[in-house]
Amino acid sequence: MKTLIISVAVISLMACNTRTQIKENPKKDVIEREQLLDQNTDSTQYFSEETLELNQEKTKSIKVERLITTEDDKNKLQELVIAKKLYKEEDFYILNYKYPYLNEEMDVDNVQFNDFIAENYLNIEATENEILEDKVIFCDSLGIGRCMDKRIIDYKVYAVKSNLISVLLYKENYYSGMKHSTYMFECLNFDLNNHKFIYYNDFFINNSEKELLTTINKTITNSINSGELYYECWELSEEDFKVYKNNFVVNDDTVEFYFDDCIICPSYTGTYSIEIPIKEIMHLIKKYNDQPLIG
């Protein structure tokens, strides 16, 4: 409100000065009025950008809330999947991790899963080095004296019959000087009987990528055409699908592919995932009718 009052006062003062100078120099008066119009245009643009930013903040919040509030099978699997936490705060960063740990008392071979989590997500020294490198590059370039980063990990877990669990790890990265945090995802499918991870080529038939990509893009296009929160989203490229094709979780009814910010939608709108009903892609799933992994 103070900025608006000052702006109005300045405009009023300029208009007053213009009226005073009409008798002295009409040509100069025209120039000053043109400058005043330019300032008004800039002011309108400013408020328009401010409104746009507020709308983007709102849609970003809705997008994140949908991710966080999605129901999973944690309660059903609480004996098998134990929730673990790691918190560390230093001068320049905060690490706040929640991650799954498979109960080794139920099956000693669950250590395969736990070791993978430890090696890939709990290597604090590697994370610290990465953050400090980012600080030197990013913060120094902006002239920020103190750059506080936050790395947050949380998860969801889904059960498929008794032999497969799907884990979604979602990582929120906050960088000082940036308006929004960014989200990244990794999906882990673990065979509880054979104690090994299941990847795209283990789950889907050979040469299924083209048809599955078409199905994903059809879903994206339909969502865009429906309006809602999918404005400014776009179809998934073949190159990005190759990168993210292992990023899927499974439940009894759907296969859901997850994508980092700005892969299929900008960070402030749209969705992080594309959900496909099992019945639509049943013919692309290996051994679906012969000892299927899913129900």
Results as ranks from 00 to 15, higher is better:
265 C>E: 02
189 N>D: 05
22 I>H: 01
29 D>I: 10
63 K>D: 03
31 I>A: 04
125 E>V: 12
289 N>F: 10
197 F>W: 03
14 M>S: 12
208 S>M: 02
235 E>K: 14
177 G>I: 11
90 E>I: 04
138 F>A: 08
100 P>I: 10
36 L>E: 00
66 R>S: 08
108 V>K: 15
72 D>V: 07
257 F>E: 04
45 Q>L: 07
4 L>H: 14
127 T>R: 11
218 K>N: 13
137 I>S: 10
62 I>G: 11
151 R>C: 00
128 E>M: 04
259 F>M: 10
3 T>E: 13
39 Q>D: 02
226 S>K: 15
112 Q>Y: 05
126 A>K: 09
89 E>P: 00
203 F>I: 09
40 N>P: 00
42 D>I: 07
222 N>Q: 13
66 R>E: 06
63 K>Y: 00
38 D>T: 05
207 N>V: 05
5 I>V: 12
100 P>E: 07
124 I>C: 01
222 N>Y: 02
208 S>D: 05
140 D>Y: 05
219 T>G: 02
267 S>I: 10
277 P>C: 06
15 A>L: 13
96 N>I: 00
202 D>Q: 10
292 P>R: 06
263 I>C: 08
274 I>C: 05
19 R>V: 12
248 F>N: 12
26 P>V: 13
178 M>E: 12
100 P>D: 04
23 K>A: 12
34 E>F: 01
114 N>A: 09
24 E>N: 11
111 V>A: 11
126 A>R: 15
39 Q>T: 05
43 S>F: 02
238 E>Q: 14
110 N>P: 04
31 I>D: 06
215 T>S: 09
41 T>D: 02
250 V>P: 02
155 Y>E: 05
246 N>S: 08
291 Q>Y: 05
255 V>D: 04
113 F>C: 08
202 D>N: 14
27 K>M: 01
237 S>G: 09
68 I>F: 05
236 L>R: 07
185 F>W: 07
284 L>E: 03
165 I>W: 01
76 K>F: 03
120 N>W: 04
290 D>G: 02
198 I>N: 04
26 P>D: 09
2 K>E: 09
67 L>A: 13
45 Q>N: 09
101 Y>E: 08
287 K>C: 04
36 L>C: 00
108 V>S: 13
121 Y>K: 15
64 V>A: 14
53 E>V: 15
50 E>Y: 01
138 F>T: 15
260 D>C: 11
275 E>T: 10
5 I>F: 01
166 S>L: 08
144 I>M: 03
138 F>N: 13
53 E>P: 02
295 G>Y: 07
131 I>G: 01
49 E>A: 14
261 D>A: 07
56 Q>H: 06
58 K>F: 01
275 E>F: 00
140 D>L: 06
